[in-house]
Each structure stands twice: as structure tokens, then as C-alpha cells.
Design a binder for these strands. Structure first.
Lengths: 219, 219
DNA sequence: CGAGTAATGTGAGAGCCACTTACTTCGGGG
DNA sequence: CCCCGAAGTAAGTGGCTCTCACATTACTCG
């Protein structure tokens, strides 16, 4: 189950792993899936790959950098779950939805992703990664932002300032429902997930409805 | 700076601390303030109090329980900052505010608390405390919930179901803006804090404006 | 084709941590 | 006044991150 480095070498006859860097990221994703981001350790990952505890440091300067690589991958999967294709073709796929309904669906998907792929979501937001140190992570977020922006712009083409404010409000609301759900604030189990996703969707529609207020206090 | 247990004993002549339990919580709050919730360690707290590393275990079964005590205190301070008095008298204090404005102000205060008392906020939401293990923490949250509930009810007295949905949406939105702000998503510095608080307030007003949609999709 | 070099992995270990155990000290109730 | 239990100590276990000197392998270039 956890061969020591020498055992692995005896079995495979190889001294070098081959592609330890990628294997580390894969194993990290798997381990986080089993034990949560809190139970993740470089030592355990090394053990599972049958490699010494010092080996990862040939590929990542520290533990946090490996977590950042996991986070970057998590953002890709996140984007897929939000139904974002390579280019703008995705908006045509569900062309029968109004922009408002599409935005509400994305907010619901945000919450569902957090619950169904919790380890990845935690890697993004609860691993304590200093994102200013890892621009790659921030870059992996861009496609999601872009897709949201397109839908928001379709909704208020006449008001770019309001569009930006609305986009921010939608993300914040989705994120709030998602993190509070993972915190156990709404209970656990599939019902809690579905219910929270629905309420988040409704909140998105409410924000869209009342978006005039987002421009600031009228005086 | 960090007297060993025997040094402290030589200086003070005392073997027993007096009130180590309370001192532990105080020192924990201070240490988290300096190094963040991630840099907190029982060992360091013990060192600062000039007490052996095993001493805390006479008062807390494990590290997480001490953090839970910190979280409970954090909720109290949180409540004060949201302007919640002992009873319902607080709503009269700023009687010239409409219920909507009062709610928007509370959402803004939520964001400002997260930024200005970040260590406490992190103790509440980023310390990985399993809140189901510590009902006390949940209980400390109740006054905040109650104050919010009063203001929301004042707004939609005719619709208790909608009131509950609105309250949840307001909390989620405030929480989302707050956590993303701490994540660095909106930049750093006082301007980012003030701006985010303002946008969160506006979002609250937008939610209130469009609250009809919170009841669910109309079909 | 055959060095020499850079990349990759090992093993040992330093220093931190949480938590345990067996022992010591001391204050307060009988 | 004594003794019992609460509170603290010292030492130790096992885990973790990260470092360093060294071993092994792959690759490049003459």
C-alpha cells in the first residue's frame, strides 16, 4: 500500500520516477479528496508514490506551491462544471434561456460545484494559498469571469458600470452561499445542497431584479 | 521574552498560574492577531505564558477546543460591532433609519468587521473548527441572527417565508463579499475595504428591492 | 560514441508541532 | 492538620516541513 523508496526501486528497477511532477499533482488531488485539504501532507503523498519525503522538493519549492498547482487544476474543472466551453459557443447551446436565467443557473452551479467537488473547492479557497504569490491560479480563473461577464453584458448592454457591479454581486452571493453551505450552516446531505443551490439561484434573480440599487445610494 | 516554566517559577515564586484557562484564550487571540490563524500554535501560546507545552491540556482537550473558545469570544465582539445591544433597544437608537437602510448598514458592517478584525473573523470561518462539535459557538451566533431577523421582519411583516429567504440572502451576500475581500480578490488596503463594504451595502439594497424573486421561480 | 554535467531521487536529520504519560506541587475542604 | 484532587512539569512519541550531502541516471555536445 505504501512501498518505501527502496521497495519501489526493487520492484520496478527504476531509480527515477519518470514524471514525478505530474504524479504529485494527481496524488495530491486524490489525497485531498480522501482526507480534505486539512488532512493533506506532502509526506503522505510521497509515501503513496513510493518516493522519499525529500523528492517533491525537486519539483516544488514548498508545500504551498504544490497546492497552488492543484488549485489551478481545480479552476479548470470548475470552469467545465459551470458549462464554459473554449469560446463563446456555449451561450448558443442553451439559447432558449434568457440571460437572467442563465446567470441564475450559473450561480446554482457554483454552489453545486462547491458541494459536489468540495476538495477542489477547498483547495481554491480554504487551503490558505497566498494567491498573490501564484498568478497562474488567478489566470486560471479568467475564463470563468469572462463567461459571467458575457452573460451580464447581454443583460445590461446599455450600462457597463452597472454590469460590473452586478457581476461582482452575483459572484459574492454565490460564494457566500457556497462557503456557508460547506460550513454546515444549512445542514448536510443532498437536500441541503439542492435547497441551497435553489436559494442561491433565486437570490441571483433578486439581484438582477433590483440591480438599479447596485449603482449606489440615490440621493 | 519567553521565559521557560522554571524561569517563570523562579521569578514569581508561583508554581500554579492562577487562571491559566482565561490567559490561554487571551494569548491565543493575541497570537492569532499577530500571525494569523494559520500561524497559531499551542506551543507558542504556552511559551508566551511561560508555561510548559503540556499545561494547556489540563484545560482544553485539544487545540481545536481552544480555538472554539476563541471563536465564541469572536462572535461576541462581532455582535457588538454590528451594533447589537443586549435587547431590542438598539433599533430605537438609530430610529431615523428605514429598515432597508439599517439592513444595508449591517451588511456593510459585516464586511468591515471581517477586514478590521480579520484574526477574529478567521477564527470563526477559516480555522477549520467543526462547529457541530461546539454548540457553544453556534449559540454565540444567535444574537446576531436575532437582530437581523427583527429588522427583516420589520421590512416584510406580511410575509414570514419571504423574510426568512431575505435574511439568508443578506447573510450569504455579506459573507461572500467579506471572504472574497480577505482572499485579496478586491485588492488590499483601506480603500478596498471601504469600497467592498459599500458594494455589499448596495447589493443588500438590490436584494431587498428584488426580494419578490426570492420566493422561487414564478411559473 | 563517450565523457561530463544537470536533473532527479535518497537518507539522514534539524526543528517545529500536537498530544501523552508519569511524576510533582500546592491549595482547600474534611 | 492532612490528604486528595486540581494544576503544572519534564520527557518522550510520532508526525510534519524542509535542508543537505550524496547517489544515480539521462542528456548534450564534442
Amino acid at each position: 500500500m505504501s512501498p518505501t523508496p527502496s521497495e519501489r526501486r526493487a520492484e520496478t528497477g527504476r531509480y527515477h520516477h519518470g514524471d514525478l511532477r505530474a504524479a504529485l499533482v494527481d496524488a495530491a488531488v486524490e489525497l485531498i479528496g480522501e482526507r480534505g485539504v486539512r488532512g493533506f501532507s506532502l509526506a503522505e503523498v510521497s509515501r503513496r508514490l513510493g518516493v522519499s519525503a525529500g523528492a517533491p522538493y525537486k519539483h516544488f519549492p514548498d508545500r504551498e506551491t504544490l497546492l497552488a498547482a492543484v488549485a489551478a487544476r481545480a479552476f479548470e474543472i470548475f470552469g467545465e462544471m459551470l458549462g464554459i466551453g473554449a469560446d463563446a459557443a456555449d451561450e448558443d447551446a442553451d439559447g432558449d434561456l434568457t440571460p437572467a436565467d442563465r446567470l441564475a443557473a450559473m450561480v446554482g452551479a457554483y454552489v453545486r460545484f462547491a458541494a459536489e467537488r468540495r476538495p477542489l473547492f477547498d483547495a481554491l479557497f480554504s487551503a490558505g494559498i497566498d494567491k498573490s504569490r501564484f498568478p497562474e491560479v488567478h489566470r486560471a480563473e479568467a475564463p470563468i469571469d469572462a463567461a459571467l461577464e458575457r452573460s451580464v453584458r447581454a443583460l445590461c448592454a446599455d450600462d457597463p458600470v452597472g454590469a460590473e457591479a452586478l457581476e461582482g454581486a452575483l459572484i459574492a452571493t454565490a460564494h457566500g452561499y457556497a462557503t456557508l453551505l460547506l460550513d454546515g450552516e444549512y445542514g448536510t446531505g443532498p437536500d441541503a445542497v439542492a435547497g441551497t443551490a435553489q436559494r442561491a439561484s433565486n437570490a441571483a434573480l433578486a439581484l438582477i431584479e433590483g440591480r438599479a440599487a447596485l449603482r449606489g445610494p440615490t440621493r
